[in-house]
Design a protein around this nucleic acid. Structure first.
Lengths: 338, 338
DNA sequence: GGAATGATGTACAACGTTGTAAATCACGGC
DNA sequence: GCCGTGATTTACAACGTTGTACATCATTCC
């Protein structure tokens, strides 16, 4: 169907290999043949067949990006960055959605689709150690987020304990004493939730506040409805909170919705902080105070690490702590000016 | 590196082709050899090399999905659906972001990366006819949205005139008479904007209202900040509107932000409608009335059409009008009950 | 008993590319 | 005139897979 090197070679009156040499800028090609081949290429509109190259090289030029859900803003924003960085280095990205389901994650990683990938960046949510068992030993992997078994693979994340501590400390700094937390997960080893809870507790203790277990609300997932429901639960308490630290922005936006719909004033009566700095939080009313991970840095680092592994690096699994910073907005600072 | 059919064949004591026949469930293989090969496959953990297959077949198993930006919720939600549908039919999706820039769109479609794609679904934003000139004639394409030159390629969209008319009529039905429109684009042939503006005008005229050009606000892009700015412009008018039809939800959320930050009551003083039904609008305060396109249907239809083309269908370019419906929420109906 | 039929298995080539090794050529030095 | 050197070009094989054509064998039919 397409134009191949054979066609180019025939038109230019040279061997296929010589044509290939021109394409690959091989040194020892005479100027005369070079131009002849070049014009043949132009005339025929030849473009190399990447599939054939990949077969030859044993590479596909494809990076996998496995995310729970693409329509979760944080993941969408991350995907955008990853794709941009990868493309800049002339790699393509194939996105897979795991829905946080273990079976899909397994299938995805062990299936024949995975064989075409040169490497994989995964943001594991629900998945545990057996996941990695399914991983091809020779497939480079970079983990995003907190679920990492240390020493298993390269890993990029923010310092989630510190992030949670910053957020909670900010609420305490406003004078709040009954600070709730939304986002705990019932399952024992739920990575991110675990460490954020730790940071939350640490901030409370540092301020001399005794953590109240009734203020720690577990959720099934990290979407807006979960946050909304958790907030309804908190409001129904005999002694409701005066501030809430939500483990991500979607939970916070859901909680915010419940508060406003219930006529609770934010931040006067209840202040709210989230994590992720998704775009929605910059335009909600009130705007959402949040801990912003450096997404560009995360994407950059993840792709770099992965490409190094693909390039053959065999050093010990590395860990990169990306930056984060608290962005104070109206949901804690109140309406300032417009 | 990996296990190939050759290894399997050797272990099972058969020819490579016989091993291949077992893998492909070829009819005429004796039960004895079949089981022998099967167990060799299991023992070695053989998985077919897709790259080699693709080379052989001249197909890659990859669909391209070209979107302006992945972090725009509508596109993210659409991408999620497309990936899900494609995967169900065992195709993989490679996402490219055009940023709405013509040069990137060109590069993307004509570059050698495109050669590896069996087909392309594009949601063209800024791109015109020259885009299609760059398209390989033999590359199946499905267009999403309104920028289509009719008869050029298969095309999936909602009836945007009707959608805009429904939205505007709803506002008029609330008794509003000064209905503004945010989302007009200055460039002459800006597909979607054009048709939505037409629907808006039609609804006004149908209600006997004379369209006021001052109430039609152009924007540079369709993000929240554009909506916020456009709304500021409208509020500064000597005779501001009592309702706004925004050409998408992000514009509406931006406009909503401006209104609330300015102390304008929504919907009492100004009612708002958007288009897209993105998740944010279901949790904003007030929640956002919107026109919901049937995204699942769009994704389903786009993938189906594309696969038919890839399968060799040569019929005339088709056009599919996906369903849409108005979802009335608080930004027009007000707080009902909680 | 011979031939036709069908089941089963194999060798080879090809998809488009590039590494390897070897062939060819030009040229300067003796 | 011969050789060595290095530049230039080429044939071949291989990456892993499968379609085509053919070989082999058993069965059935006349």
């Amino acid at each position: 169907m397409g134009v191949s090197l054979k066609d180019v070679a025939k038109l230019a009156g040279v061997s296929v290999k010589t044509a290939s040499n021109v394409v690959n800028d091989y040194r020892h090609v005479s100027e005369a043949t070079r131009t002849r081949v070049r014009s043949a290429i132009d005339e025929l509109g030849y473009q190399p067949n990447l599939t054939a190259r990949h077969l030859r090289y044993g590479r596909s030029g494809l990076l996998g990006l496995a995310l729970p859900e693409l329509d979760v803003p944080y993941f969408a924003e991350l995907a955008k960055e990853v794709i941009a960085v990868a493309e800049q280095r002339s790699w393509s990205v194939l996105i897979d959605q795991t829905d946080g389901r273990g079976d899909r994650e397994r299938l995805l990683v062990s299936g024949s689709r995975a064989r075409t990938l040169d490497g994989l960046i995964i943001s594991p949510l629900a998945l545990g150690a057996d996941y990695f068992a399914a991983l091809r030993a020779d497939m480079p992997v970079v983990l995003l987020g907190e679920k990492a078994a240390p020493g298993t693979a390269d890993h990029v994340a923010i310092d989630n304990v510190a992030a949670a501590e910053d957020a909670t400390a900010h609420l305490i700094g406003l004078g709040r004493r009954r600070v709730a937390a939304i986002g705990h997960q019932r399952e024992p080893s739920a990575g991110t939730a675990e460490v954020r809870l730790r940071g939350y507790r640490r901030a409370l203790l540092a301020a001399g506040i005794r953590p109240d277990p009734a203020l720690v609300v577990p959720v099934d997932s990290y979407h807006r409805p979960d946050g909304a429901e958790a907030m309804r639960h908190l409001l129904a308490l005999p002694n409701p909170p005066d501030a809430v630290f939500c483990f991500n922005d979607l939970l916070a936006l859901g909680a915010l919705r419940t508060l406003l719909a219930s006529g609770v004033r934010v931040p006067e009566e209840v202040a709210i902080v989230g994590v992720d700095d998704v775009e929605d939080g910059r335009f909600s009313t009130p705007t959402l105070t949040t801990v912003a991970p450096d997404k560009a840095q995360i994407a950059q680092a993840a792709v770099s690490m992965l490409l190094e592994r693909i390039g053959g690096s065999r050093c010990r699994p590395r860990e990169l702590i990306a930056g984060h910073r608290l962005i104070v907005r109206e949901s804690t600072a109140g309406r300032t000016l417009e």
